[in-house]
Every structure is written in structure tokens, then in C-alpha cells.
């Protein structure tokens, strides 16, 4: 993390880059709160040794065992949930995710994932943006699936290449593309009256039926682009 922050601070051509997203501030707050908690506990063990349940020791405990931890709960959880949206979080499962990372960053990448990643549609959060459904329910499902994936990676109970357990639902594409000018100009995307085609909304026709490949992974059959 500190190497990353250092590189970010050095910037490009010595020009400082902006620092201070909600995630970055939360990482700092989490670190400081953890440190303060440890300092309070350490100080109480040294200063109030043998009489920790009496007098002024309780005020120190109020800080170290109640107030700071109460702040740590939201800051810590925010850090975890926000960081787990990052592409680098997904990419940290090296054995299973490396081919996908290579696909994303390949200079001549032709897959949908590479196009979205390299055109910076959702900087830093590309995996999450395309694989999490809309709304709170989508976030919850994505985190749950992420936990299962992490468990499989930890226990080595996964198969390579990874296969999607369900077809990629159109809702994941439509949450961004629905209503976009380029998308709505395409006749096959709309019904008469200029509204989004019913078949797309009901997943009768999948986006991935025409737009492939989502990821271009060596060793997997290369799907051809179908005519729409």
C-alpha cells in the first residue's frame, strides 16, 4: 500500500496527482484508529497495571475499548467493502485471475472486458462494475459470490479455466448502456417507439449472444462475433 501511495504522490513528471478518495481516507482512518486502540490498551497495561478496573483507568478504557472501536466499525467496514470493488482486489487471486488480468491489459485486447477496461469506463472498479447487479441486492450478491470465490481460491477447490455458473444477465450491461445514445441508435436494441427491446429486458436475447468474447482467455475456444 505505501509503495502505491508513494508512486501516486510522485505523480507524472513530478506533478502531484490528486489523493484523497473516500477509500484512501478510510484506509488512513482505519490505520490510525487501530494504532490509537493499541496505544490505549498498551498504556493502560503499563500505567494502570493491577488496577485496571478502577478510577481513571476506566476513562482510558472508555477511549480504547469503546469510543475508538465504535469508530473503527464503520471505517473498517467501509474500507473492506470499497476495496473489495477494486480490480486489484479481484486480481490478487493470482492463479485463477491472472489470465483475466492479462486479457484486460493486453495492448491489442479485443474482448469486451479489455475494451471496457482500457477505455476507462469505471476506473479501478471494472470487474465489480460489470459483475455486480444494480442496487443493494446486487452489491450483496456480488460480495457473497466474491466470498465464495475467495474460499475456493484459499482451499484450491476451483477449476481452470473458470466458467460462469449462470449466463451473463443483460441487466448487468443495461444498467449502464440502457438509454445511452450509441446504444439506442442501434435498431436491434430497440422496439418500435424507440424503447429498449423487450427481448433484451427479459433476457430472451442475451447481449453476449452477439457481443463476444467477454474475456479472451488462451486455451478456451475463441467465440466469433455473431452478426446481430
Amino acid at each position: 500500500m505505501f509503495t502505491e501511495v508513494w508512486h501516486q504522490m510522485r505523480g507524472v513528471h513530478g506533478v502531484f496527482l490528486e489523493w484523497g478518495t473516500a477509500l484512501e481516507w478510510n484506509i488512513v482512518f482505519t490505520f490510525v484508529l487501530c494504532l490509537l486502540i493499541l496505544c490505549c490498551i498498551g498504556a493502560s497495561l503499563i500505567v494502570y497495571r493491577g488496577r485496571q478496573t478502577e478510577g481513571n483507568a476506566l476513562w482510558l478504557h472508555l477511549l480504547g475499548l469503546c469510543i475508538f472501536p465504535l469508530f473503527l466499525l464503520p471505517f473498517g467496514n467501509f474500507t473492506i467493502f470499497e476495496y473489495s470493488k477494486q480490480e486489484r482486489f479481484c486480481a490478487s487471486c493470482h492463479a485463477s485471475m491472472d489470465p483475466y488480468v492479462r486479457d484486460l491489459t493486453a495492448p491489442d485486447g479485443k474482448s469486451l472486458a479489455a475494451t471496457h477496461y482500457q477505455d476507462r469506463f469505471a476506473p479501478g472498479e471494472e470487474c465489480y462494475t460489470c459483475h455486480a447487479n444494480y442496487g443493494v441486492h446486487g452489491t450483496f450478491s456480488a460480495k457473497l459470490l466474491g466470498l465464495k470465490d475467495a474460499w475456493r481460491e484459499l482451499t484450491g477447490t476451483y477449476t481452470v479455466p473458470i466458467k460462469m455458473s449462470l449466463p451473463f444477465p443483460n441487466a448487468l450491461c443495461l444498467k449502464c448502456h440502457n438509454g445511452a445514445r450509441k446504444f439506442m441508435k442501434e435498431d436491434s436494441h430497440t422496439d418500435p417507439g424507440g424503447v429498449v427491446a423487450r427481448d433484451l429486458l427479459t433476457d430472451k436475447t442475451l447481449c453476449t449472444d452477439c457481443h463476444v468474447p467477454g474475456h479472451l482467455i488462451p486455451g478456451r475456444p475463441k467465440a466469433a462475433m455473431k452478426a446481430s
Binding site: M1, T30, L33, I37, L38
Partner: peptide
């Protein structure tokens, strides 16, 4: 609480997913 704080420091310093 100290255990959580130590794990928290390790988590934000390394950003290790596990």
C-alpha cells in the same frame, strides 16, 4: 479488540484480500 486492531493494521498496510 487488540486482536482486531492488529489484524486491521496488517490488512490496511498489506491490502492482502485474505
Amino acid at each position: 479488540i487488540a486482536t482486531v486492531a492488529v489484524v486491521g493494521i496488517a490488512a490496511v498496510v498489506t491490502l492482502n484480500p485474505y
